[in-house]
């Protein structure tokens, strides 16, 4: 009987000690981070294009936090999906083709001779990257344009083109070297 009591006492003591230790650790090493929605939002490309089916990046970030799939953002592409997968510790899925394909970075270009100055594109632009006033020709601030496509649809005279960002010697980049023969053969076999 004494033995049993001792054992119970010891176990109790151990439980108390470890409990206290865990409790202390939880307080001491608490990770102070952004709320998860902000962290997700920070990884999204902020084009506000709505291709994911949500009215902007923040809403999609909220949806992801509530369990929405992470592969619905074509402008972010593979990089964003990978980053989201790393953040949320889930599997990186291939981009959902239903929402569009990954494209090189684009900017809107207004054919200024054809612009009638209707301001419809200005109202559509989510980042205020189009300058102009009623009956005045409009123009795109290239550095601010996210290439979201949202201004193309409202234009009554179809004078907005989406063009890829021009490559110059300053933004030209080296590609990774061609795949070594083992990978090449693998691809050929696949």
């Amino acid at each position: 009987m004494g033995m049993v009591l001792t054992a119970v006492a010891v176990l109790l003591l151990l439980a108390l000690v470890f409990g206290a230790l865990l409790g202390y650790a939880a307080v001491r090493f608490r990770v102070e981070g952004d709320p998860i929605v902000d962290q997700i939002n920070a990884l999204l490309p902020q084009t506000q294009c709505g291709q994911c089916g949500f009215p902007g990046c923040k809403p999609y970030a909220e949806a992801i936090a509530n369990g929405e799939a992470i592969n619905k953002c074509p402008p972010g592409g593979e990089t964003t999906i990978q980053a989201l997968a790393d953040l949320l510790d889930v599997e990186a899925l291939p981009l959902d083709g239903e929402h569009g394909e990954e494209k090189p970075p684009m900017v809107a270009y207004i054919r200024e001779a054809e612009c009638i100055g209707c301001t419809k594109c200005i109202q559509a632009c989510p980042v205020d990257a189009i300058l102009g006033a009623a009956k005045q020709m409009h123009t795109v601030i290239v550095d601010e344009c996210t290439g979201c496509d949202l201004c193309v649809e409202p234009c009554p005279v179809d004078c907005i083109d989406m063009v890829p960002l021009p490559v110059t010697t300053r933004n030209w980049r080296w590609d990774m070297p061609p795949a070594p023969p083992l990978a090449a053969a693998e691809r050929g076999a696949a």
């Binding site: 939002n41 920070a42 999204l44 490309p45 902020q46 084009t47 506000q48 902007g56 990046c57 989510p126 980042v127 205020d128 990257a129 601010e144 996210t146």
Partner: peptide, 13 residues
């Protein structure tokens, strides 16, 4: 950087 800039502009808008 650009995404951050866009986010700020979007929120300001």
């Amino acid at each position: 950087t650009k995404a951050e800039q866009s986010r700020v502009r979007y929120e300001q808008r």
